[in-house]
C-alpha cells in the first residue's frame, strides 16, 4: 500500500476531492515527522506510539572490511504498536 492508495480510500470513504485527499495524507505524515524532528514523541491511541530513543556511542565493525569503527551516539525513531493494532493482526491472521 502506498500514499496514493490511502489518499484514494480517504477520497472514497469521506468524500474529499482526490487532490485534497492526497494533500491530507502529506499533511498527516509531515506533522508527525515534524513533531519527531522537534524531539517530541507521537502517541496515536488505537494505533501506536512513535518514540525517540537516544543511542549511546558503541564500537562496531565494518562488516565488509572488518575494520573497527566507532558508531556515534544518535537519535532514532522506534514504533510501539498499540494492543489494538496487534490484536487486529492476530484476528485476521487466523
Amino acid at each position: 500500500m502506498t500514499k496514493a492508495e490511502i489518499a484514494n480510500i480517504i477520497h472514497e470513504r469521506i468524500g474529499f476531492s482526490k487532490k485534497e485527499s492526497a494533500q491530507l495524507v502529506e499533511t498527516v505524515l509531515e506533522e508527525i515527522k515534524q513533531a519527531l524532528i522537534d524531539g517530541e514523541d507521537v502517541k496515536l491511541s488505537g494505533f501506536g506510539h512513535f518514540m525517540l530513543r537516544e543511542k549511546h556511542a558503541r564500537r562496531g565493525r565494518n562488516p565488509k572490511t572488518g575494520q573497527d569503527i566507532t558508531i556515534e551516539p544518535r537519535r532514532v525513531v522506534t514504533f510501539r504498536a498499540s494492543q489494538l493494532l496487534k490484536n487486529n493482526l492476530l484476528d485476521d491472521a487466523e
Binding site: M1, E5, I6, I9, I10, R13, I14, F16, L24, V25, V28, L44, G46, F47, L85, N88, L89, D91, D92, A93
Partner: peptide, 16 residues
C-alpha cells in the same frame, strides 16, 4: 475522520 481512516487503512493492509 481523516486521521482515523488513515490509520485504519494501514491497520487493514497490515492485517492482510
Amino acid at each position: 475522520y481523516v486521521i482515523n481512516e488513515f490509520f485504519h487503512a494501514i491497520s487493514l493492509a497490515l492485517s492482510e
